[in-house]
Computed example of a mutant assay.
Amino acid sequence: MPSFINAETVWIDTPHGRLFARRWLPLDVARSRVKPPIVLFHDSLGCVQLWRDFPQRLCQATGHEVIAYDRLGFGESDAYPGDLPLHFIRDEAERFFAILRTELQLDRFIALGHSVGGAMAAHCAALYPQSCVALITIAAQAFVEERTLHGIRVAKAQFEAPGQMARLEKYHGDKAHWVLSAWTDTWLSEAFSDWTLESTIDAIDCPLLALHGEHDEYGSALHPVRIAGLATTPGDYLILDNCQHVPHREAPEVVLDAVGRLLGSIADE
């Protein structure tokens, strides 16, 4: 298992504010440059910091550079200018990731997203088919399911308890209330109820692996099945035993092994 170095923190200017990003590189930087970097897309309440030690471990396990960034409105990135639009998933791929990709000169990349970040990663794979080498989703949603809405309603009620908003403020500062309402108001909106991944992207022309927890409180096993079905060549999915919505935290070794096997199969081609 190679050692890693936390190479750098990067600030990326966009027309709407700055994005915060962090990069991890293996100790053998020259060799890692041959491999496409893995770009992480966080979930609805997430940020770089909430990936915790997963980027480092992913870098160590695969030998690939890993890049994580805070979407506008989240973490250390600037505040989002206004309400989150209903097409925010597609918007992330078309606008903000496009800028990050140009600034970091990502000719090739591997997209890995958690929860709604998985849908964003899928959009990036579809939008940049010549550049996206592989797509990995973790606990991603492919449509608006009643289980998803129930989980969001439960979480929204929990955040109304005294002191709970401090959990978000720790990572998002004074943007925390916007972060919570951007998630709950959007997904619980009637106008968003007919969203599906299939209706918003074309087929995905790269190796695809959809990971999903057996007991995911935000989505049934239908989601990874439908995501895997987006691939032009048969995509794969894996249901992780005894896992809920954050498999990379609940069963990191299983996730890292699955990702490593996918990337190893690509390298062998």
Rank of each mutant, 00 (worst) to 15 (best):
Asp185Gln: 13
Asp202Met: 07
Asp13Cys: 08
Ala30His: 11
Phe20Gln: 00
Glu65His: 04
Val29Arg: 12
Asp53Gln: 07
Tyr171Ile: 00
Leu25Met: 13
Ala157Pro: 00
Ser115Cys: 15
Leu263Gly: 05
Thr200Trp: 00
Arg108Gly: 05
Cys132Trp: 01
Ser44Leu: 08
Ala21Val: 01
Val39Met: 01
Arg167Leu: 14
Ile67Trp: 01
Arg22Leu: 05
Glu8Met: 08
His64Val: 08
Thr233Asn: 11
Gly118Val: 05
Ala267Thr: 12
Ala210Lys: 04
Leu106Gly: 03
Ile201Ser: 09
Leu135Ala: 04
Thr200Gln: 15
Asp268Arg: 14
Leu50Asn: 12
Leu19Cys: 01
Leu100Pro: 00
Pro234Cys: 07
Leu208Trp: 06
Ala7Pro: 03
Arg261Pro: 01
Leu58Ile: 01
Thr102His: 13
Gly73Trp: 01
Pro224Gln: 12
Ala121Thr: 12
Arg18Gly: 00
Ala30Asp: 14
Gln130Ile: 00
Asp13Phe: 03
Met165Glu: 14
Leu135Ser: 07
Val116Leu: 08
Leu230Phe: 08
Asp107Met: 00
Ala7Leu: 12
Gly213Leu: 02
Ala161Val: 07
Val48Cys: 15
Ala258Ser: 13
Ala21Gly: 03
Arg249Ala: 15
Gly173Thr: 11
Leu19Asn: 02
Asp174Ala: 15
Thr137Asn: 02
Gln49Gly: 15
Leu127Ser: 06
Phe97His: 03
Asp205His: 14
Ala142Trp: 08
Trp195His: 06
Ala122Gly: 10
Val66Asp: 06
Glu169Phe: 07
Tyr80Pro: 06
Gln56Ser: 13
Ser189Cys: 04
